[in-house]
Nucleic acid binder design. Structure first.
Lengths: 220, 220
DNA sequence: CATTTTACTTATTGGTGTTAAGTTTGTCAA
DNA sequence: TTGACAAACTTAACACCAATAAGTAAAATG
């Protein structure tokens, strides 16, 4: 009995340890991938490099991730997690819906400018990756988007912003999102626009957006 | 003398023919590349495929283009040319600065939705390609952008739009550009947004933009 | 102690861009 | 007309890449 119990304990502890080690290696791979991805960018990112940097053969990665896209998806999740934190901080640091929209807008731009490689992966390069499965990683995306829609809902409720006719809150979120996304996307993609121009334009940009939302759009 | 002249004529005609044939092959390569690029997208586009599709070996391409990026650059130029035509048509089909901005905005969206692969290459994927050299292909880009700034200048002159403080016409162009670019970019990159949402949002989007420009932006 | 499972590696396949080294074909002067 | 030369094009090769299959050594299990 006693022996039986002990061996059982050992067995389960051993299984636990192996699971932990497996999860650890997965983390090591993901961290190395994230670093190398940011360093070399999407185009020059390879599984072989990741494997070499952590002292494993390339095929080992396939024991922890389905394929390259799956690994990239989780690199993107890492980005979404950080992104969510930044947005939440911006939200918390401001008062009232309008200021919150403004603050999150600024934070959004700065995140994009500070992490262009990640930003591209998350929002520009492989959007279809996000349709793969729906694991726990999606929470961060939903959270980040929820911060935006929360500000909008608060603004609608308080009456300080008005949605154009026939546009629900979710679409309104997409509208606001697209506004600042355009600026970020151009800044990190088109050298002619660039970071300085984006920083110069963000305030007028937000002015226009908030003014447009404030008055409601009846034209046309 | 007569023989001398004839041989000279033959010689120059021959050289001309060779130059023409060379240019023709270059065109054939470029057309095949453009087609295959649109079919397979950036990621699955290869020189070997292009070569195979026109019955040449892959290395022949290097006799007419510096490298893959150079070929892609000229594929992008093809896109810019078409894009410029579409924009010009939209401009010509409308009267007055405001309607022209609106018309070009709509046309811009529809171009992006109709040619997402090209749009990505031109405005999202490899903007640094445009910094390579400055051949004749740039005219189309400049032209397309000029259509936008022309409408803006006309609007400023007529007093129907006002630029935010400290924003010159060129930056104002970038601002307007970024507005509609954001919508297009999200539509073709993020499945959650999608074409339908973009088409639904474009009018409110333009309303907000034009309303914001119309009143001037004094708020901070 | 034997068997099976786990973690990992090596080998291989079929693809990529790019360069170097041929080969054929047309041009041109003697 | 012929021999040198250049242009157009191909084959071979290199160094990568993602991905799969087959193999190996150690650990876990009964």
């Amino acid at each position: 009995m006693k022996e039986e119990t002990r061996s059982q304990r050992i067995r389960s502890a051993s299984a636990e340890r192996r699971a932990r080690q497996k999860a650890e290696l997965r983390r090591v791979i993901l961290d190395a991938a994230t670093t190398l991805f940011e360093e070399h960018g999407y185009e020059n990112f390879s599984l072989r490099q990741v494997a070499e940097s952590i002292g494993y053969s390339a095929t080992t990665i396939y024991l922890h991730f389905e394929d390259k896209d799956d690994l990239l998806l989780h690199v993107a999740f890492e980005g979404f997690r950080r992104f969510g934190e930044v947005m939440q901080a911006a939200y918390d640091g401001a008062d009232g819906p309008l200021d919150r929209l403004r603050a999150t807008g600024r934070a959004y731009l700065e995140f994009g400018l500070a992490h262009p490689v990640h930003y591209r992966l998350m929002f520009m390069q492989r959007g279809e990756l996000l349709d793969r499965e729906t694991p726990e990683g999606y929470e961060s995306i939903i959270d980040a988007f929820a911060i935006l829609t929360r500000s909008l809902s608060e603004g609608l409720e308080a009456g300080v912003i008005r949605s154009p006719q026939g546009v629900d809150v979710e679409s309104l979120g997409a509208l606001v999102w697209s506004h600042v996304h355009g600026l970020v996307a151009l800044a990190i993609s088109m050298p002619k626009v660039g970071r300085d121009t984006a920083r110069q334009l963000i305030e007028p940009h937000l002015d226009i957006l908030l003014a447009g939302l404030g008055r409601g759009a009846g034209a046309s």
